[in-house]
């Protein structure tokens, strides 16, 4: 109910963009479903843009058109929602998706990204993810990868990945 009031306040000036920062994190799933439903409905009716900030890979899969994945202060991958879930082009995204428990993994170990997110006062040089990355090479320590364009056959929208080895990652996840 309180989150509905917040949404009403945000709507009051009929904005063209709403930024929702973890709007359902404090809520239970049945209430979360109500709030996300409401947001989606308002967005459709009022033709608003929505930037949804969340850590829940389920919620974004449900509502987003495009997803940007952040790590240590940078966007490391950006892609249309269907493409990113089908085949991530950054090892961090790949690790996140792999660590979600899936039905066919029952009784097995979950995939876990090794190590911990870096301290933001001491971000690793080169690619910030390299100390935790299974694909890291020497170049990852010395050169920060740009958010480069990802291309492959069948891709219609723009897609980007900040990984020196996006091609290899993409092939490995397909």
């Amino acid at each position: 109910m309180r989150q509905r009031i917040m949404i009403a306040m945000a709507m009051a000036l009929e904005p063209s963009l709403i930024i929702a920062d973890e709007p359902t994190t404090a809520l239970d799933v049945t209430v979360q479903a109500q709030v996300m439903d409401l947001l989606a409905e308002l967005q459709r009716e009022l033709h608003m843009g929505l930037i949804l900030i969340t850590h829940d890979l389920g919620v974004v899969a449900d509502v987003a058109d495009t997803i940007a994945v952040m790590y240590a202060g940078r966007i490391v991958e950006r892609a249309p929602v269907h493409e990113i879930y089908r085949a991530p082009a950054h090892p961090y995204t790949r690790g996140l998706l792999a660590s979600i428990p899936r039905l066919d993994q029952k009784g097995q170990d979950l995939y876990a990204i090794k190590g911990l997110p870096p301290n933001l006062t001491r971000i690793p040089p080169g690619c910030a993810f390299h100390p935790r990355c299974p694909m890291a090479q020497d170049v990852c320590v010395t050169e920060e990868p740009p958010l480069a364009r990802v291309t492959y056959e069948g891709l219609v929208a723009e897609r980007r990945s900040a990984c020196h080895f996006w091609k290899e990652t993409l092939d490995a996840s397909r």
């Binding site: 799933v29 479903a33 109500q34 389920g58 899969a61 449900d62 269907h82 879930y85």
Partner: peptide
């Protein structure tokens, strides 16, 4: 109500709100 981390499931899922 649990969001499924699979955008393909969006269309053909029945949700009970």
């Amino acid at each position: 109500a649990v969001p499924v981390p699979d955008p393909e499931a969006r269309e053909h899922r029945e949700r009970i709100i």
